[in-house]
Design a protein around this nucleic acid. Structure first.
Lengths: 243, 243
DNA sequence: TATACATACATGTATATACTTTTAGGAACC
DNA sequence: GGTTCCTAAAAGTATATACATGTATGTATA
């Protein structure tokens, strides 16, 4: 009765492979609903905990969605919502016909720079503005931005209403930015980030480190975290060919 | 004796929070080795399976490293190896003083395009070259590239030794690329990718979709997967200001 | 000295069991 | 018809137990 592959891997891995393979063939694609844990137990002859672990891991890997009291479903394909040019998340959300809202968690002027882990040439010109903002798309948190701003370059920063303003646009207009650097990485969500974005610890996130310069002076340092299951970053350009 | 927080979350989440918090304070930072599962059981008064689950999830989230028979250790900080300009991974690896090697998994000319999920205007000009290459840094697989190449634009593609050649450079030299598009996302690793890159299913990966054009014709379509725990993508540019 | 083995200890896997929490749906009631 | 309540079913959590597997280390032996 056991239809699992006869390999050397652990049982729960076999169950995962079995389920993945059957998702691939479209076996359960009619209503996208998988058998219950107990049905898997009966069909495969393994314990419920083993089935549960397999389903849990496939869920955290993004293949499945589980609803307590309801069942297990095949996850819909990821929406390829592309964030063109890595700049204005608010405009991007509105352009998709969705509702944008942001929540300012922190907006303060820092006078002590002891605990800041910033580059010295930036940190030494205290006071720095520190802000943390969550951006929502239809009330679902999708991005978290932590920002340090050099106030000598951006006057009236604290008078701005950042729950209304598209921050990047604002900064680009108010400051003579001469250079922008982006470092993009894929990281598992840490505890605090996960809490703010309402995702599980360890979920895949796109992490964008951004620094902007005005001349030789760093104007802003930001850390932008996008929920990996909801965002991509896009760019398109024409290379200057050296041939 | 129970030092866990008194919140409403599940026990294993409390244990995870407890461990994360103590990693933060540097409690175990001398040799980076954590107590054994049984020591946690004695200290926290929970079952070993609960401790095990907490440690396992923190491990798959990248915070810990576990060695069977040895113990549990705090994961070292992620090397910020930046891939400048998103192009030549081989040069990048060598520049870091490491050994580069690549392995060609697939190199074939496709004549039937039925099973290809490519854009029509590209797929219809069969035959297309399909190749899959893994790149290694010091024998550790770090990137997987799957590529479709339009042979009408790149003659002698199959005569090239791609285990030696920096592919992107090669293509940029051989073809009159007029435009490049990159879509970057953070995704959990699928089964096959995880196998090729020797990581767990569900690990965070940077996924780069790249299309290059020659005039109005798509010349290449590639899917590059970077192991999230080892790579970042970087860019730095001077914006043309509209003020 | 060096090899082989035994052992202790660490994590890894699998099961059985019990209970909790959430949800859907039907039954009873207004 | 609509509301409330009950119940079954589904996933979620927690524990105890057993055994498997991998590693380091000390000890006996060649």
């Amino acid at each position: 009765m056991n239809t699992l592959p006869d390999t050397a891997s652990p049982l729960y891995e076999k169950v995962k492979d079995y389920i993945l393979a059957n998702i691939g063939t479209g076996k359960w694609s009619k209503d996208r609903k998988l058998p219950s844990e107990n049905e898997f137990v009966a069909a495969l002859g393994v314990s419920r905990m083993t089935v549960h672990r397999a389903l849990r891991e496939l869920t955290s890997a993004g293949f499945l969605i589980r609803l307590q009291g309801v069942g297990t479903f095949i996850a819909p394909p990821r929406p390829q919502s592309t964030l063109i040019e890595i700049n204005n998340i608010a405009a991007e959300i509105v352009a998709r016909g969705n509702r944008h809202r942001s929540e300012v968690l922190v907006l303060e002027r820092i006078t002590s720079t002891k605990e800041l882990s910033l580059s010295f040439e930036f940190a030494k010109r205290a006071a720095i503005y520190h802000s943390v903002v969550v951006n929502f798309e239809n009330d679902l948190p999708v991005q978290l931005e932590e920002r340090f701003v050099n106030p000598s370059l951006i006057p009236d920063y604290d008078k701005q209403d950042f729950s209304k303003t598209a921050t990047y646009d604002y900064l680009m207009q108010k400051t003579p930015v001469t250079e922008v650097e982006h470092i993009i990485s894929a990281v598992p969500a840490h505890a605090e980030t996960a809490r703010h974005l309402a995702i599980d610890i360890g979920s895949c996130c796109l992490l964008l480190h951004r620094r902007t310069w005005t001349g030789a002076v760093v104007a802003t340092i930001s850390k932008l975290t996008y929920v990996g299951s909801r965002y991509s970053l896009g760019s398109r350009y024409s290379p200057s060919r050296k041939t």
